[in-house]
Amino acid sequence: MQFSLAEIPVPMVFATHRIIRDCNEQFAALFGFARHELIDQSFSRLYPKLADFVRTGHMWRSNLQGGHVYYDERIMITAASLRFWCKVNGRSRNAADPFAEALYCFEPMNRAVTEASMTLTDRQRQVLTLVAQGKTNAAIAAEIGLSRRTVEAHRQRLIRATGARNSAELAAWFVASR
Rank of each mutant, 00 (worst) to 15 (best):
R35A: 06
N63Q: 09
Y47D: 01
Y47N: 09
F33G: 00
H68K: 15
Y47G: 06
F14M: 09
Y47F: 15
D22L: 07
W60E: 02
L30R: 04
R45K: 15
I8F: 08
T78S: 14
P11N: 11
L46Q: 08
L38G: 05
I75P: 02
T78F: 05
G66S: 00
A15G: 11
G57N: 05
T16W: 00
L30P: 04
V10A: 06
G32I: 13
F43W: 14
H17W: 02
A28T: 01
H17S: 13
S81E: 10
C86I: 13
L50H: 12
I8M: 12
R74Q: 07
Q41M: 12
L82V: 06
A80S: 14
L38T: 02
F27R: 03
L5M: 06
H36R: 13
R83Y: 07
H36E: 15
T78L: 03
R18D: 05
I20M: 04
R74Y: 02
A34T: 13
T16F: 00
I39S: 06
F43Y: 15
P48L: 13
V13R: 02
M59V: 13
L38D: 01
H36V: 15
S42I: 14
W85E: 03
I77S: 02
F31E: 05
R45W: 13
L30Q: 06
L82A: 15
A79H: 13
H68Y: 12
V69D: 00
V54K: 08
L46N: 03
V10W: 00
E37M: 13
F14V: 05
F43D: 06
V69L: 07
S42V: 12
M76S: 10
T78H: 04
G66N: 08
A15C: 13
D22K: 09
R83W: 09
M76D: 11
D72P: 01
K87I: 02
V69T: 06
I19G: 04
H58K: 11
L5K: 05
F84S: 13
E37Q: 10
E37Y: 01
G57W: 02
C23Y: 06
H17N: 15
W85P: 00
P11H: 12
Y47P: 08
H58V: 04
P11Y: 09
M76N: 12
S81R: 15
M59I: 11
R35Y: 03
I8Y: 08
R18V: 04
V69R: 01
F31Q: 06
I75R: 03
R83Q: 14
L38R: 04
R61T: 06
G32P: 07
I19S: 08
W85K: 00
D72S: 12
F53E: 01
S42Q: 05
R55D: 09
R55G: 02
T56L: 09
G32A: 09
Y47Q: 11
K87V: 07
R74V: 09
A80P: 01
R18C: 07
L5S: 08
C23G: 12
N24E: 03
P48I: 13
H17D: 15
L46K: 03
P9E: 09
S42R: 04
